[in-house]
Structures are given as C-alpha cells and as structure tokens.
Design a protein around this nucleic acid. Structure first.
Lengths: 191, 191
DNA sequence: ACCTGAACACCGTTCAAGT
DNA sequence: ACCTGAACACCGTTCAAGT
C-alpha cells in the first residue's frame, strides 16, 4: 500500500511552510500537489491552523527522537553540538528552507493560538536537549546557580543557531551560516 | 501642514510588516488606516514590492544614522554594543514587533527580487557598523587575518542578536531576549 | 495630480450534494 | 468514508473614469 492522502497533505504542507511560511501555504496549491480539490483538505484538517498544528507536532517528535538518539551515541559536547548545527544546516541545504518553528516564530503575530503554543514547545525541546548536552561532561552535579547558567546558555545557543539560519536563509547563502557558526565556536558560545 | 498621504502610507505599512510580515500587509486594511481606497495606494506605489522596498530603504538609512551618531558619542565597545542590543529590544517593546529586515529575511522565498536585495543591505549595514565597533579599541591596525576574524565576529553578533529577537518575538516574551543577550555577554560573544 | 468603482484571478472556509 | 462545485468575504492588481 502507498502513502495515505492525509500523510501526503502533511508532507507537502510542511515543505511549503518551511519554504514560504504559514501565509504562503495555499490550500488550492496544496490540493494540486496532492491531486484532490481544496475543499477535500478540510475533510482531514478543518482549518489551516489545525493542519499546521499537526505538522509542527510531528516535526517536534521526529527531531526530538533524532537528537535523543545522538545523545546515546556520544557524550562529547563538541561532537553533539556539531550534530545539532548540522541539523539546522541540512534545512538550508534542502531548498533554502527554514526550520518549521523558526519560520512560524517570525510569523507569530498572525498565527492562531494553538499554533503559537507549538512554536513555544519547539523551543522548550531544543533547550532541554541542549541543557542535557552542556551538563553531560560536568558530572551533572552543579549547584542551583550553575543550573540556571546552563539553562540560559542552552537558550542562547538555540537562539544563536536559529538566527544564523534566518540570516543565511535571507541571503540564500549557506556560507554565511557556516561563517557564523564558526565564529560562535571561536567566541566560546558553542562548545 | 500635516503629514503627506505618501508618508502616512509608508509609516502604517512599516508598522504592519514588522507586526504581521509582508504577507500580512493588506492594501485594503492599509487604505482604511490612511483613509483612502486601496486602489489609490497604487498611485503612490505601483506594487506591494515597490512599497516595501521604499520602507526598507528608509529603515536602513534611519538606523544607520542612529548608529553612526552613537559611534561619535562613545568609543567603549561594551557601551556601543549595549546600545545596539537595546535598539533591537525597543522593537520588541513596541507591540512585539520584529526588525523589519529580520521579518523579511524569514519571508525571503516569497519576496520580489528587489525587496530581497534590501534585506541583504540591512545585514551589510549592521556588519559594517559592528566591525567599526569591534576594531575601535584595538588601534585598528590588525593584520589581514584579524580583519577577517573581526568581520566574521561582527556577522555572528548580528545573527545572534537577530535570533534572540526572533525567539523572543515567537514567545511574546521580552525576558527571553534579555536572558539570551546576557548569556551572549557571559560567553564572550558580545564585548 | 489625486482618487475611485468595478473587474480579474487569487485566498480560506462553509455547506449541500454526490459516491 | 471520502470527495466535490458553488458560494462567501477576502487578497493584489489593472484600468477606465472621475475631479
């Protein structure tokens, strides 16, 4: 059996949102790609918001699983963060796309409330994973002050990598991403 | 005499793009704000792209003048970069808006070519100013290798601050911006 | 010089109707 | 269970027509 209509809608929608954003996602264009009429999409996803909530949820799940797998394979912080920045780099490689949640983060003010909540969840997942990575070589027994500093550094790495991707996306220039990541490492922001 | 119609179109359009993005800018809504009909906007700006090119150009000019004035008042890198991050913070304070060019950077793939070019110009202006700031206390006589390192660090600061703004915008949470900027400083990325 | 209504091909959404 | 055409109020853009 081949991929379900529902799956094909979600996959095509995800690629379009990462390319053109929430506002750039058209039900009529989407329907053409899938081979049905635009009214039929509403059978699977009543509104555009519900469709995008579904694709962001799955996006978070899959990337969380990917990152957790990396964590099992290595405990070297430099290696793990290197895989992390490579993940964001691959998105740019794939048709100058942006992270799904990064794109939606910029469009936040025109999103339905439930989509906004998923954008926040993406950030929380990233920060949680980075906290684990940053603590992995310290024995993990720092006092409360250290935990706060680690959390803020994790959020800073998430924001900085997201920003590097946005700037490189805006220029359609992967070299810009690479230069910025290298400079983050040189400054000590990235381990 | 009061503000011209053309000025009022540009000001309202800028505020909307920083709020809802290029895709979220509607000529009909814009016309209502200015008190004319949507067809009349095309008299001043034939297309949406030409309108946005005009507002980004002025945005760049005004921020460049603002930053250059700061540079005359101080040569302390910490103080100057502090003013720089405050500038991006004020945008968030003003109705959770994003930097005009940052918003457009995310929307890049659905922009006309001439708008894309202005987004690149914004980045070049930011980098140029930051290079001046970073070099200001070194005597400015580094060799070629230093100049390259300074340029990459300037671009990294630009990307990192833009990313902090995007993440805070996505959460509608200024405290997130403040925490990330503080962590950049602690890591040594920001002077 | 400045503004407008009407038309065009788009958009998300709804709904009655088909199989 | 799954799909559709037609309608609705939106969108940027064009253009002939008004003052």
């Amino acid at each position: 059996m081949s991929t379900s209509t529902r799956e094909r809608i979600m996959e095509a929608a995800r690629l379009t949102v990462q390319d053109l954003g929430y506002g750039g996602l058209s039900f009529r264009e989407l329907a053409k790609e899938v081979g049905i009429k635009s009214a039929s999409i509403h059978y699977y996803f009543p509104t555009k918001g519900e469709l995008v909530v579904a694709i962001v949820r799955r996006y978070i799940e899959r990337h969380e699983a990917f990152l957790d797998d990396l964590f099992i394979e290595s405990v070297d912080r430099g290696v793990l963060v290197g895989h992390y920045t490579e993940m964001y780099r691959r998105t740019l490689r794939n048709g100058n796309r942006m992270c799904l949640a990064g794109m939606l983060s910029a469009e936040r003010n025109e999103l339905p409330e439930d989509v906004r909540a998923e954008v926040v969840r993406w950030g929380e997942m990233n920060e949680r994973w980075l906290v684990g990575v940053l603590a992995s070589e310290d024995g993990g027994n720092g006092d409360g002050g250290d935990a706060d500093r680690t959390r803020h550094r994790a959020r800073a790495i998430f924001a900085a990598v997201s920003g590097a991707q946005m700037i490189a996306h805006g220029r359609n220039e992967i070299a810009a991403y690479d230069d910025v990541i290298a400079a983050y490492r040189a400054s000590g922001l990235l381990p």
